[in-house]
């Protein structure tokens, strides 16, 4: 899958950390497969945000591909 999924709108702040999200490389896994992907992440607590377009688009496609393997 493409490696970078950073939304145009990055005006998101993590609560309760109170810091803006940053583009960071993180790992996502499914059914024995793992990918390094750049996503909006809280630099303080490490929580990751997944956009609707990503979840219902590319992520869903990859889920289905992996399920067919």
């Amino acid at each position: 899958m493409d490696l970078r999924f950073i939304p145009d709108d990055m005006n998101w702040i993590c609560q309760p950390c109170g810091v803006p999200l940053e583009a960071r490389k993180v790992e996502i896994t499914y059914l024995n497969a793992s990918f390094k992907v750049e996503l909006p992440v809280c630099p303080k607590c490490g929580r990751i945000m997944v956009e609707e377009e990503l979840a219902t688009g590319r992520m869903f496609e990859v889920e289905q591909l992996l399920e067919d393997k």
């Binding site: 960071r24 993180v26 790992e27 996502i28 896994t29 499914y30 793992s34 996503l39 992440v41 490490g46 929580r47 990751i48 997944v50 979840a55 992520m59 869903f60 990859v62 889920e63």
Partner: peptide
């Protein structure tokens, strides 16, 4: 989504 996010 069903994919898992791995926190640092």
């Amino acid at each position: 989504h069903r994919m898992n996010l791995v926190k640092e």
